[in-house]
């Protein structure tokens, strides 16, 4: 659990950090080469996924059983075709869109919900804290993947549904982290002063607790996104992903594994490598952001 604020002394009672701090943080982030590599990877993968189809146009709606399992380069298919004739490169782009959109949206949703509930629980304490944290403890005691699988089996998976399902269970981590921050921040003098002047609890949470925990929140959000992308991949790998003609990298990897023994390597490597790269990218970015928000590291 972070003890960032205790290590550096009381934070300034300010709504927005001075511009210099952001610039300093950016400098530290840029000094982290892996973070820049991660950012570059993300931009590259997102660019290929979202802008690629404008350049490399393929039919990802209609199957073509006359063109299944074509090898890379055959009949103009740069990365070959899959088991129902979809162009594999076009499918990677389509799958990337789903994986990135669902991952980002679920990660952001989990972060927002977790941050709000964690801040409220930590700041108000008492029965509010007890109630929220018991819910968190109870839900954390169940392996989240099983819950996802159960829900995905009950409802028809779609991108919005996956975002909701993953977001509904992934907020537990951020809630715990932010609650810890809030427990520390609520006893700070500036918060006490604001309350003494008649400020409400809601204002304290909105204007002081959350803004001062923003570093932890943002860093955690990057890992949430990486986690969410992996969850989408897991669910699709288990056959509980979004049905065709939609695609995502996890589902493509699962399909590719069925072809493991057939020598159709182009169905296995590209989605697997894409998943590795996007998850690594977010992890590197998260590490860089952690350095940027960690004041002690700025002195190195």
């Amino acid at each position: 659990m972070s003890t960032l604020s205790e290590a550096v002394g009381p934070a300034e009672p300010t709504d927005t950090p001075p511009r210099g701090l952001w610039r300093q943080g950016l400098t530290v982030f840029c000094e982290n080469r892996l973070a820049l590599v991660g950012l570059g990877l993300f931009v590259l993968l997102a660019g290929v996924s979202f802008l690629g189809p404008l350049v490399y146009q393929t039919d990802q709606v209609h199957t073509d059983l006359a063109s299944v399992h074509l090898a890379p380069g055959e009949q103009g298919h740069l990365l070959g075709t899959d088991g129902v004739g979809y162009d594999q490169l076009g499918r990677l782009m389509l799958g990337g869109q789903t994986s990135i959109i669902v991952g980002l949206a679920a990660g952001v949703l989990a972060t927002i919900v977790g941050t709000l509930l964690g801040a409220i629980a930590g700041f108000f304490g008492g029965w509010v804290d007890a109630a929220v944290m018991r819910v968190v403890d109870a839900m954390m005691s169940i392996p989240s993947l099983f819950l996802f699988m159960l829900l995905a089996a009950i409802v028809t998976p779609s991108a919005p549904m996956l975002i909701l399902i993953i977001g509904a269970f992934a907020w537990l981590g951020p809630a715990r982290l932010v609650r810890g921050e809030a427990l520390t921040l609520r006893s700070r003098e500036y918060v006490q002063a604001m309350r003494g002047m008649g400020g409400t609890g809601g204002r304290a949470v909105r204007r002081h607790i959350i803004p001062n925990a923003i570093g932890t929140v943002i860093v955690n959000a990057t890992f949430q996104v990486a986690d969410a992308i992996l969850y989408v991949a897991y669910l699709s790998f288990l056959g509980l992903g979004i049905p065709p003609p939609a695609a995502n990298w996890g589902g493509m990897l699962s399909d590719g594994l069925a072809d493991t023994y057939s020598g159709h390597w182009w169905l296995l490597y590209p989605p697997g490598i894409a998943i590795i790269l996007i998850v690594l990218a977010f992890n590197f970015i998260g590490d860089g952001l952690r350095d940027a928000f960690e004041v002690r590291l700025r002195r190195r």
Binding site: M1, A226, I276, L280, N283
Partner: peptide, 21 residues
């Protein structure tokens, strides 16, 4: 700062890597 998330995400990436390996 410690977090369970980076480890888990990295493990996931490693698992995916192991799968394709």
């Amino acid at each position: 700062m410690t977090s369970r998330f980076p480890g888990r995400a990295l493990r996931g990436a490693v698992a995916a890597a192991a799968t394709i390996a």
